[in-house]
Amino acid sequence: MTERSGEKSSLVRVLDREGIGRTLARMAAEILENDGDGIVLVGIHSRGVPLAQRLAEILEAVTGKKIPLGRIDISLYRDDVGPWRPAHSQPVLKRTELPFDLDELVVYLVDDVLYTGRTIRAALDALVDYGRPKAVRLAVLIDRGHRELPVAADVVGKVVRTSRQEDVQVRLLEFDGEDGVWAGTEVADGD
């Protein structure tokens, strides 16, 4: 466990680059144990998208078979968008791509952090607008607890115990220029 240098915070690193790689490899193995054939991976924007891509690469290397990849944006299905919530800037819409017929497929939703479960509820609603998958499963890199809906992951990379006040930051090369997961309390300047 190393503290991030140069930042005034008590964030603790819970996974480094190699740790993420090992965790994803184990997650891929679990996916293969659960479901051998007819699976597709669908990443939830933003960081679920590159994670789904990395899982697909591992699965393809192991099985030698092409794993279809999709991406889904849940902004239009959020439960905090609507007349009952205060004014805010709407989430920027991102591309949803599901370039396959979902029926008869086992869909693995992939996300970085499982927290309240509300994102997954929205993703499930979005998914059924595109078809009727044989099954939908959930793979997350980090499960930090504090569910507000009856949602559970089928494949979990790492369980990180947190309080609600704490923060979990998944940083990925594709977005953040580095790989790693940090958890803890970010201390504001001047505290």
């Binding site: 944006d73 299905y77 609507g82 920027v92 819409l93 949803t96 979005a126």
Partner: peptide
């Protein structure tokens, strides 16, 4: 224009409807 670009996709789905403005 950027937002419209993403919303074009809704018209190409089997179910051409999203729940975003439900109740409005």
């Amino acid at each position: 224009l950027d937002t419209a670009e993403q919303l074009l996709e809704v018209a190409r789905r089997p179910i051409k409807k999203v729940p975003t403005l439900r109740g409005m």
